[in-house]
């Protein structure tokens, strides 16, 4: 009797290990797409050119079928008095900062999703509902999303917003880089609507060259920093400014991709299921020895 139980113990243990090992390849390849194409697109925002007209806010709302006042209402500059963040009702907002060099010409900065090259939200999303596209856009898929809001915890720019007031099908709302418009051959709504061409749309690599060129030609106008070129491993949207970016409410971030540490821990713990399976085997061995010793003691007594 005792030996049968020991044999079945070993048999079942082997079966479990085999099943776990069989799972390995499937898991290793699972996950959302994260393509980094050399032709990915981006936008360069020149904050020294922006006049704070907020036409981009209006155009964005129109393009995404969000509720908006008529364009004329945007001539009112009072909303600029307080700092705002993109939310579920506005995927982009413009914020105003005092300009010490020219008090009557405040600096204005458009804020939206940066479309990171190594997005923390893509890495974090439990169901892979967010993905980095070939063209640089970071997109959210409503058919997958479960509304856990881990992307919001992960985002270093605190961009994704959630429809907290909806009981059914609340959405994660953020800039989608006007994917639908671009598919129809149009520019992103904000880029098209900007009357002063503060926004330049194009291949990211080219934009980086343009940005550095601009800084070299007018070193008095800009600080020597293209925000987004290297931050968290690079972003599709990049900024030029006349002062340090932290003075314009940009987060100070390192150059390593935001999901880096988390992913290496995660893959380290799993490493093709070797650590969990080894632990299983180890515990199995401990259990078997402990039982055998126990049985032997009982036999003697």
């Amino acid at each position: 009797m005792k030996s049968t139980s020991r044999r079945s113990f070993l048999k079942a243990g082997t079966a479990i290990t085999a099943v776990a090992a069989g799972l390995t390849p499937a898991t290793a390849h699972a996950g959302p797409t994260n393509v980094l194409s050399p032709n990915r697109l981006g936008v360069l925002v020149d904050t020294t050119v922006c006049i704070g007209c907020r036409n981009c806010e209006w155009a964005c709302k129109r393009a995404h079928e969000l509720e908006t006042a008529p364009l004329e209402a945007y001539e009112d500059r009072t909303p600029l008095r307080e700092m705002r963040r993109p939310d579920e009702t506005a995927l982009t907002v413009v914020n105003q900062f005092a300009n010490p060099k020219a008090p009557d010409q405040p600096t204005t900065v458009k804020v939206q999703c940066m479309h990171c090259d190594h997005p923390a939200c893509v890495s974090a999303c439990i169901v892979g509902a967010i993905s980095k596209q070939d063209d640089g856009a970071v997109l959210w898929d409503t058919d997958k999303c479960i509304g856990c809001r881990y992307c919001m915890v992960a985002c270093p720019f605190q961009i994704p917003a959630f429809e907290y007031r909806k009981a059914i099908q609340p959405r994660i709302m953020k800039c989608d880089f006007c994917t639908d418009r671009r598919a129809a051959g149009m520019l992103p709504a904000c880029v098209e609507s900007c009357p002063v061409e503060a926004l330049t749309f194009g291949p990211r690599e080219e934009l980086v060259r343009v940005a550095h060129d601009k800084v070299r030609r007018a070193p008095d106008r800009y600080v020597e920093h293209v925000y987004g070129e290297r931050e968290v491993g690079g972003t599709s949207w990049m900024y030029l400014a006349d002062r340090k970016f932290e003075q314009l409410a940009f987060p100070t971030l390192g150059e390593s991709p935001a999901p880096g540490v988390s992913e290496s821990i995660q893959h380290g713990i799993f490493a093709y299921f070797v650590p969990p399976v080894s632990l299983y085997a180890l515990l199995g061995a401990v259990m078997w020895t402990a039982r055998q010793r126990h049985d032997d003691e009982e036999d003697q007594s």
């Binding site: 898991t27 290793a28 699972a30 996950g31 959302p32 890495s123 974090a124 999303c125 439990i126 169901v127 892979g128 509902a129 997958k144 999303c145 479960i146 509304g147 856990c148 809001r149 881990y150 959630f162 429809e163 909806k166 099908q169 609340p170 999901p259 988390s262 992913e263 821990i265 995660q266 893959h267 713990i269 799993f270």
Partner: peptide, 29 residues
């Protein structure tokens, strides 16, 4: 607790078929 905190509680089963191996939350789930 998880089901009531997520916005779309009726999609709680999604992680079973929609996998993201790099997500710590996926592993926890």
């Amino acid at each position: 607790g998880v089901s009531i905190d997520i916005g779309r509680y009726y999609y709680i089963w999604h992680p079973l078929i929609m996998w993201n191996g790099s997500s710590a939350l996926f592993e926890v789930g």
